[in-house]
């Protein structure tokens, strides 16, 4: 399986990328196609918690994109209740085989840090974000406290 060749190298790269926000990555012992990244956003209201992100690579990776979802609940205009979100870089139409997982994580981190209320997945949250930002921040912070993982020391 050619996916292995690439994924082994990418896994090592991501672990040593030096970016705290997504360098905590684990892969299932018996399955190189399943990774979990601990995402550490640095902007409020998400900077008090850590969010588990699951990455599933197809067997024909890198020719088909990985599937990326939040495993930790997050209150965000661009992420739905099941942890799904829309990131152009990993859509089937836009996917380029030379794209690295690190670039995908970078794009995801930037989406989380800077919500895009004009392209929402959760219209209600987006509306709150725009019209009553104070309330949004409060809800999201509470949500983070309640559901998010602890940040590593």
């Amino acid at each position: 399986m050619s996916a292995t060749r690439r994924l082994q190298k990418e896994l090592g790269d991501l672990k040593n990328c030096g970016v705290k926000a997504y360098e905590n990555v684990e892969c299932e012992e018996t399955n190189l196609l399943k990774w979990t990244v601990l995402l550490l956003p640095d902007k409020e209201p998400y900077n008090k918690g850590a969010f588990k992100v699951g990455i599933t690579f197809p067997v024909d990776y890198p020719f088909k994109p990985p599937k990326v979802t939040f495993e930790t609940k997050i209150y965000h205009p661009n992420v739905d209740e099941e942890g799904k979100f829309c990131l152009p870089i990993v859509t089937a139409e836009n996917w380029k085989p030379a794209t690295k997982t690190e670039q995908v994580m970078m794009a995801l981190l930037s989406l989380i840090n800077e919500p895009e209320p004009s392209h929402p997945i959760r219209a209600d949250v987006a509306e709150e974000f725009q019209k009553d930002n104070k309330k949004f921040m409060k809800t999201a912070e509470e949500h983070t406290r309640k559901h998010a993982e602890k940040r590593p020391e």
Binding site: R5, R6, K9, P62, P97, A98, T99, K100
Partner: peptide
């Protein structure tokens, strides 16, 4: 400017 090792890998 195709700097990534993912390109040279191909």
């Amino acid at each position: 400017g195709f700097p990534d090792w993912t390109c040279t890998d191909f």
